[in-house]
Simulated assay, not measured.
Amino acid sequence: MTFGQQPQGYNGAPYGQYQSAVNVQPTQVYERAEHVSVTRAYGEMTLGLVITAVVAILTQVSGFYISFLRATGGMGMWILAIVQIGLAIYLGVRVMNMSTTAARVCFYVYAALMGVTLSTIFLAYDLGTIGIAFLVSAGFYFALTMFGLTTKGDMLKAGPILMIALIVLIIAEVVMMFVAPTNTALKVVTAIGIILFAGLTIYDAQFTKKAFAAYASQGPEMIEKISILCALNLYLDFVNIFLYVLQAFGLSRD
C-alpha cells in the first residue's frame, strides 16, 4: 500500500507511523494469501504436467496410441484432438459455474489426454533430445514466470495482440499440414511459436496474480476455481514452449 504525504500529529510525529502499524497486518495477510493462491495455481499446473508425462510414458510403453490409431484409422487422431480442444474450451468457459472437484477432474482428464497425444514424441525424438528440451523449456519458463510476476510493466495490455498472433500461427500450421513446408519455413514458424508462447507465459503469469486479487473477496472456493483456470493457461504455455523447443532441436540436427 502506498501512502501520500502524511499530516503531522500533535506531537510532531507523522500520522503515517500509526497508520502503518494498523495496516501492516492486513497488508501482510493479503500478500500471504496472494502468494498461497499463485503457488496453488502453479502447483495445479505442475501436477497436470506430471500426469501428462506419466500417461505419455505408459502410452508409449503399452503401444496404446498406435493400436488406437490402427483401430480407428485417421479419424482417431482427429477425434482425440477435437475432444481435447472441446474439453479445454468447456473448462475455460464453464469453470466458474462448476464445482471445484468437477473443474479439477476436467483439468486432469485433459492433461491425461494430452499425455496420450504427446506419447508420439518418443517415436520422433530420442530420450536425450527430449530430456534436454525439457530442461531448457523448464529453465526458460521459470525465468519468464519470474519476470511476469515481478515486472512493473503491464503485459495484460498486449493480450489482444498475442491472441491475434496465436490465431495467425495456428492458421499457418494448419496450412503447413497440407502443403509440404521447406526447412526454412519450419524454422521460422518454430521461432515465432517460441517467442509467442514466451509472451503468453508472461501474460498468464500476470493474469494469474491479478485474477486472484480481483476474486480475493469471493471466498476460498472461487479462489480454487481461479487457480484451476490459471493452471490450465500456464500448463498450455509450458507444453507449447516444450514442443517448439523440441522441434527446434530436431530441426537443428537435420
Rank of each mutant, 00 (worst) to 15 (best):
I202E: 01
F238Y: 05
Q17T: 14
R70E: 15
L80E: 11
M1V: 08
Y141N: 07
G219H: 03
M163P: 00
E44T: 04
G250T: 12
Y235L: 14
L123F: 06
A198P: 06
A138T: 00
I57D: 04
F242D: 04
Y10Q: 06
T150D: 05
F142R: 05
Y108W: 08
K210S: 13
Q218V: 00
V24F: 07
T59A: 01
G12Y: 02
M177C: 10
F140S: 04
T182S: 15
S252Y: 08
S99T: 15
Q25C: 01
I226A: 06
L246I: 08
A248V: 05
A124I: 11
S227F: 05
A21D: 06
G4T: 03
L149I: 14
S252F: 14
C230V: 04
A214S: 12
Y42W: 08
L229Q: 15
L144I: 11
F122T: 10
A71L: 09
M45D: 04
F178G: 03
I192N: 01
A112F: 04
D254P: 01
A71C: 02
P181L: 13
E173N: 15
S99P: 02
A185H: 07
W78M: 14
A13I: 12
I89M: 12
R94C: 04
M146F: 10
T201G: 10
Q84V: 08
T150E: 09
V29S: 07
T101L: 10
L169D: 08
Q206P: 06
K152R: 15
I170E: 06
M96D: 14
L169M: 07
L135N: 11
T120W: 11
S37K: 08
P181M: 10
V93C: 03
N183K: 12
T27N: 06
G12F: 01
K225A: 00
N233T: 14
S217A: 12
L127Q: 13
W78E: 09
P14S: 10
T190V: 07
Y141K: 02
R253P: 00
A103K: 07
A213Y: 12
V239K: 00
P7C: 06
V61Q: 13
Q8V: 13
V109K: 04
T208Y: 00
M146I: 13
F64C: 10
I130A: 04
T46N: 04
A191L: 14
E224T: 07
F249G: 13
I195Y: 03
F68P: 01
M155C: 09
V105Q: 03
G131C: 08
Q19T: 10
